[in-house]
């Protein structure tokens, strides 16, 4: 028996919005410690890694490990039926071919149940090694989304350049060039408003605008985003999911022609 109950059901709705444009389907690996999802996007350019710890759920039970292959378009349709203040429970029998979503209104007066067929997915799991990154940049997630959106008007790529002074985002294309510099902030009232650069070595890498913009669909999950960069390895874009876990996007850098 697998059962995971989340009083703050809106988090699950937001997680779905953050992955459904990148992935058509994905396996949810449910284990005693929590739920993991790891999948490459359809073009194998980026990787999504989602981690929801059991401690983050209001009730979590997983008697034996199960892998639930889900069509994310279908799951997204079902989660759209949940209100933002609904309590969401996911449950499945040990060797079931369906998963059930239960949505309870806060006053328990309305209870909806949706059963969805599971899929057999044969997905390549990638091993993500522990990496020491040269630059780790924390910035407000809304600011990052704004920068990606603004720069995507100029070209298909965004160059992210990190030095000890701060971080520079640039793009160039037919209409001209754009440069946005963010300096490290001094003291701020709210930690989530800060721009913090932890740099060992300066790094400049180029990434696809299209993918960065898709990652920013996770913005509602967290006020802060963390970018980790090293030369010649994928960028990591991480959003915390409340107290439950995190979503990480790995994007391979673009290579000059």
């Amino acid at each position: 028996m697998f059962e995971a109950r989340l009083v703050q059901g809106s988090l699950l709705k937001k997680v779905m919005e953050a992955i459904k444009d990148l992935l058509n389907e994905a396996s949810f690996d449910c284990a005693h410690s929590g739920i993991l999802l790891q999948a490459m996007d359809n073009s194998h350019v980026s990787l999504v890694s989602l981690n929801l710890r059991k401690e983050g759920f209001d009730k979590y039970r997983c008697d034996r490990n199960i892998v639930m292959g889900m069509n994310l378009t279908s799951m997204s349709k079902i989660l759209k039926c949940a209100s933002n203040d609904d309590i969401i429970t996911m449950k499945a029998q040990d060797s079931a071919d369906t998963v059930t979503f239960v949505f309870e209104s806060p006053n328990q007066e309305k209870v909806s149940e949706y059963e969805m067929k599971l899929m057999n997915l044969d997905q390549d799991q990638l091993g993500i090694p522990e990496t020491e990154y040269c630059c780790i940049i924390k910035l407000p997630s809304g600011e990052f989304a704004r920068i990606c959106r603004d720069l995507s008007q100029f070209g298909e790529s965004i160059v992210i350049s990190c030095t000890k002074e701060g971080v520079k985002f640039s793009a160039a294309g037919d209409i001209g060039t754009a440069n946005i510099k963010l300096a490290q902030t001094g003291t701020v009232d709210k930690e989530e408003d800060a721009v913090i650069v932890d740099m060992q070595e300066p790094v400049t890498l180029t990434f696809s605008c299209k993918y960065l913009n898709m990652f920013t669909k996770a913005t509602p999950l967290s006020p802060q985003v963390c970018l980790s960069m090293s030369p010649d390895v994928p960028l990591v874009v991480e959003y915390k999911i409340g107290e439950i876990g995190h979503i990480r996007y790995y994007l391979a850098p673009r290579i000059g022609d």
């Binding site: 194998h44 980026s46 990787l47 990638l126 091993g127 993500i128 090694p129 180029t206 391979a252 290579i255």
Partner: peptide
């Protein structure tokens, strides 16, 4: 024209 690398070339299958 810049080529986009595949993510699988960076991470070995586990």
């Amino acid at each position: 024209n810049m080529s986009q690398s595949l993510i699988s070339s960076f991470f070995s299958p586990s």
